Measured scan of single mutants.
Amino acid sequence: EVDTLELTRQVKEKLAKNGICQRIFGEKVLGLSQGSVSDMLSRPKPWSKLTQKGREPFIRMQLWLSDQL
């Protein structure tokens, strides 16, 4: 189980620290539009309420944070 709230907090922190905009992060890392990324980072759904497809971007965020992506 992933703590989506904590994960998105860490992602936002790393984006800010490295000067990466959400649009680029969305396109290059998540394969999503800036609007989708913005929504996901500001209002993450609980892991238990996400479908497999809904969980994929959060898994990619985890990999990106651990420099595996």
Rank of each mutant, 00 (worst) to 15 (best):
residue 1 E to D: 02
residue 1 E to M: 14
residue 1 E to Y: 02
residue 1 E to R: 09
residue 1 E to S: 11
residue 1 E to F: 10
residue 1 E to Q: 04
residue 2 V to R: 12
residue 2 V to W: 08
residue 2 V to N: 08
residue 2 V to T: 08
residue 2 V to H: 06
residue 2 V to G: 13
residue 2 V to M: 15
residue 3 D to E: 04
residue 3 D to I: 01
residue 4 T to Y: 02
residue 4 T to M: 14
residue 4 T to S: 05
residue 5 L to F: 14
residue 5 L to V: 14
residue 5 L to W: 12
residue 5 L to N: 14
residue 5 L to D: 08
residue 6 E to R: 07
residue 6 E to F: 06
residue 6 E to A: 09
residue 6 E to T: 08
residue 6 E to S: 10
residue 6 E to G: 09
residue 7 L to M: 15
residue 7 L to F: 08
residue 7 L to G: 12
residue 7 L to E: 14
residue 7 L to W: 05
residue 7 L to T: 10
residue 7 L to D: 11
residue 7 L to N: 14
residue 8 T to E: 05
residue 8 T to M: 08
residue 8 T to L: 07
residue 8 T to G: 06
residue 9 R to W: 02
residue 9 R to S: 07
residue 10 Q to M: 15
residue 10 Q to G: 15
residue 10 Q to L: 13
residue 11 V to A: 05
residue 11 V to G: 08
residue 11 V to C: 02
residue 11 V to S: 07
residue 11 V to D: 11
residue 11 V to T: 07
residue 12 K to G: 01
residue 12 K to N: 04
residue 12 K to M: 05
residue 13 E to V: 05
residue 13 E to P: 08
residue 13 E to T: 08
residue 13 E to H: 07
residue 13 E to R: 09
residue 14 K to D: 01
residue 14 K to Q: 13
residue 14 K to H: 13
residue 14 K to E: 11
residue 14 K to L: 13
residue 14 K to S: 07
residue 15 L to C: 09
residue 16 A to M: 12
residue 16 A to I: 03
residue 16 A to G: 09
residue 16 A to V: 10
residue 16 A to S: 13
residue 17 K to G: 05
residue 17 K to S: 06
residue 17 K to A: 10
residue 17 K to Y: 04
residue 17 K to W: 04
residue 17 K to T: 08
residue 17 K to P: 02
residue 18 N to Y: 08
residue 18 N to T: 14
residue 18 N to L: 15
residue 18 N to K: 14
residue 18 N to Q: 13
residue 18 N to W: 09
residue 19 G to C: 04
residue 19 G to D: 11
residue 19 G to L: 03
residue 20 I to D: 02
residue 20 I to A: 01
residue 20 I to V: 06
residue 20 I to Q: 06
residue 20 I to Y: 07
residue 20 I to W: 09
residue 21 C to V: 07
residue 21 C to M: 12
residue 21 C to I: 09
residue 22 Q to R: 11
residue 22 Q to V: 09
residue 22 Q to H: 05
residue 22 Q to I: 05
residue 22 Q to A: 09
residue 23 R to C: 03
residue 23 R to E: 15
residue 23 R to W: 07
residue 23 R to P: 01
residue 24 I to E: 15
residue 24 I to S: 10
residue 24 I to F: 15
residue 24 I to Q: 14
residue 24 I to R: 10
residue 25 F to K: 01
residue 25 F to M: 02
residue 25 F to N: 00
residue 25 F to G: 00
residue 25 F to E: 00
residue 25 F to I: 01
residue 26 G to W: 01
residue 26 G to E: 02
residue 26 G to S: 12
residue 26 G to F: 12
residue 26 G to K: 06
residue 27 E to F: 07
residue 27 E to W: 10
residue 27 E to V: 07
residue 27 E to T: 08
residue 28 K to D: 07
residue 28 K to C: 04
residue 28 K to P: 01
residue 28 K to E: 12
residue 28 K to W: 04
residue 28 K to S: 09
residue 29 V to A: 03
residue 29 V to M: 09
residue 29 V to I: 15
residue 30 L to Y: 02
residue 30 L to I: 04
residue 30 L to Q: 02
residue 30 L to M: 07
residue 30 L to T: 01
residue 31 G to L: 03
residue 31 G to K: 08
residue 31 G to A: 05
residue 31 G to F: 03
residue 31 G to Q: 06
residue 31 G to Y: 02
residue 32 L to H: 05
residue 32 L to W: 12
residue 33 S to V: 11
residue 33 S to G: 12
residue 33 S to H: 08
residue 33 S to Q: 12
residue 33 S to N: 13
residue 34 Q to Y: 11
residue 34 Q to R: 15
residue 34 Q to S: 12
residue 34 Q to P: 15
residue 35 G to M: 09
residue 35 G to P: 10
residue 35 G to W: 09
residue 35 G to I: 06
residue 36 S to H: 11
residue 36 S to I: 14
residue 36 S to G: 03
residue 37 V to F: 14
residue 37 V to T: 13
residue 37 V to Q: 04
residue 37 V to C: 12
residue 38 S to K: 15
residue 38 S to H: 13
residue 38 S to P: 06
residue 39 D to F: 03
residue 39 D to S: 11
residue 39 D to I: 04
residue 39 D to G: 14
residue 40 M to H: 04
residue 40 M to F: 06
residue 40 M to W: 14
residue 40 M to Q: 04
residue 40 M to E: 02
residue 41 L to H: 03
residue 41 L to I: 03
residue 41 L to E: 02
residue 41 L to C: 02
residue 41 L to S: 05
residue 42 S to N: 10
residue 42 S to T: 07
residue 42 S to K: 13
residue 42 S to E: 15
residue 42 S to V: 08
residue 42 S to A: 13
residue 42 S to I: 08
residue 43 R to Q: 11
residue 43 R to W: 06
residue 43 R to V: 05
residue 43 R to M: 05
residue 43 R to L: 07
residue 44 P to M: 06
residue 44 P to N: 02
residue 45 K to A: 08
residue 45 K to N: 04
residue 45 K to L: 13
residue 45 K to D: 09
residue 45 K to V: 10
residue 45 K to R: 15
residue 46 P to G: 15
residue 47 W to S: 00
residue 47 W to N: 00
residue 47 W to R: 01
residue 47 W to A: 00
residue 47 W to G: 00
residue 47 W to I: 01
residue 47 W to Y: 01
residue 48 S to H: 13
residue 48 S to Q: 10
residue 48 S to M: 03
residue 48 S to C: 13
residue 48 S to R: 08
residue 48 S to W: 02
residue 48 S to I: 05
residue 49 K to Q: 14
residue 49 K to F: 04
residue 49 K to N: 07
residue 50 L to R: 00
residue 50 L to E: 00
residue 50 L to S: 00
residue 50 L to D: 01
residue 50 L to G: 01
residue 50 L to K: 00
residue 50 L to T: 00
residue 50 L to N: 00
residue 51 T to R: 09
residue 51 T to A: 09
residue 51 T to I: 13
residue 51 T to D: 15
residue 52 Q to H: 05
residue 52 Q to C: 12
residue 52 Q to A: 14
residue 52 Q to N: 06
residue 52 Q to Y: 11
residue 52 Q to F: 04
residue 52 Q to I: 11
residue 53 K to D: 04
residue 53 K to A: 13
residue 53 K to R: 10
residue 53 K to L: 09
residue 54 G to P: 01
residue 54 G to H: 06
residue 54 G to T: 10
residue 55 R to M: 02
residue 55 R to W: 01
residue 55 R to N: 01
residue 55 R to D: 00
residue 55 R to K: 15
residue 56 E to R: 07
residue 56 E to D: 06
residue 56 E to V: 07
residue 56 E to M: 06
residue 56 E to N: 03
residue 56 E to S: 06
residue 56 E to F: 03
residue 57 P to A: 13
residue 57 P to R: 10
residue 57 P to F: 12
residue 57 P to Q: 12
residue 57 P to N: 14
residue 58 F to N: 00
residue 58 F to R: 00
residue 58 F to C: 00
residue 58 F to T: 00
residue 59 I to K: 15
residue 59 I to S: 09
residue 59 I to R: 15
residue 60 R to A: 04
residue 60 R to Q: 09
residue 61 M to D: 01
residue 61 M to L: 06
residue 61 M to F: 07
residue 61 M to V: 02
residue 61 M to H: 00
residue 62 Q to P: 00
residue 62 Q to M: 08
residue 62 Q to A: 09
residue 62 Q to E: 03
residue 62 Q to L: 04
residue 63 L to E: 14
residue 63 L to R: 15
residue 63 L to A: 15
residue 63 L to G: 06
residue 63 L to S: 15
residue 64 W to N: 01
residue 64 W to V: 00
residue 64 W to M: 00
residue 64 W to A: 00
residue 64 W to L: 00
residue 64 W to K: 00
residue 64 W to I: 00
residue 65 L to W: 02
residue 65 L to M: 04
residue 65 L to H: 01
residue 65 L to I: 04
residue 65 L to R: 01
residue 65 L to V: 04
residue 65 L to G: 00
residue 66 S to M: 10
residue 66 S to F: 06
residue 66 S to R: 14
residue 66 S to N: 15
residue 67 D to H: 04
residue 67 D to S: 10
residue 67 D to F: 01
residue 67 D to N: 11
residue 68 Q to W: 10
residue 68 Q to Y: 09
residue 69 L to Q: 10
residue 69 L to E: 11
residue 69 L to R: 10
residue 69 L to I: 05
residue 69 L to D: 06
residue 69 L to S: 11
